[in-house]
Design a protein around this nucleic acid. Structure first.
Lengths: 121, 121
DNA sequence: CATAATACATACTTTAGGGTAAGTACTTGT
DNA sequence: ACAAGTACTTACCCTAAAGTATGTATTATG
């Protein structure tokens, strides 16, 4: 249990995020490098833990499970475990998680436009 | 100039991002805590540096200027400086930057839905 | 009996990013 | 002569996040 320094700008900010700036609020939930990528891979349907691992080879197991737990805690993904051995766990998007798909889709659309040279960056 | 360790998963990943995952590619450009917030504040029109500072009180000057420079380098914002004293510098979205507005808008729309209780998270 | 498969957990180390504080340049106003 | 305003810059420190490596439970299978 690592104590959080109260004077961290970002941490203090998080308390008031929704009131102050909607984008800040979203960044609390899906900020960080891996979360949007996980959501993107779940957007095409339920995935087992091991399927996500294969779909995102660059992520370490620690990061994957950590972010899945956070996304679950934040109510964006749903974890379902069948009581079998070996374990069978699937992750899927909740309604709130599905509500974020326009964000993910807009990201993908922009990336493809860049790829196609629509924008010169 | 701080050397980047080659063995960082995220750093290595960045080389191949666009090929592998469009969302990863976008996260390279607007990932991090402050960038989407900056874009959000620029979405309503050009802003002077000092206006941005006032609009985002929680950000430190170092972070603000650092991210503005990165966004400029990435071709998402345009910096225009009038050669006057005191300095008069305005930041605005480039075409590519404007292309990201659907992403920002989708974020804001989701946040307001959460606020209105459309989703239970 | 040992290995494989799945879905994690945990201890420890490293690093990238963020925070603090101070300084710079140039001119106008008092 | 000194402060005030604007848009930065730079040096140093600290922490949160990410990476590495190993361990756990359970059962089927050779």
């Amino acid at each position: 249990m690592t104590a959080i320094k109260e004077s961290s700008t970002i941490q203090e900010n998080k308390q008031y995020a929704l009131e102050k700036c909607p984008v800040t609020f979203v960044m609390e939930k899906i900020g960080g490098y891996w979360k949007p990528i996980i959501l993107y891979h779940l957007s095409t349907g339920d995935k087992r833990y091991s399927e996500l691992k294969r779909a995102i080879p660059a992520v370490t197991e620690k990061m994957l499970i950590q972010h899945l737990k956070q996304l679950e805690t934040d109510g964006l993904v749903i974890r379902e475990a069948k009581p079998v051995v070996p374990p069978f766990v699937t992750y899927s998007l909740s309604e709130a998680g599905k509500g974020l798909l326009p964000v993910i889709d807009a990201m993908a659309a922009w990336a493809f436009k860049v790829k196609d040279g629509v924008y010169t960056i």
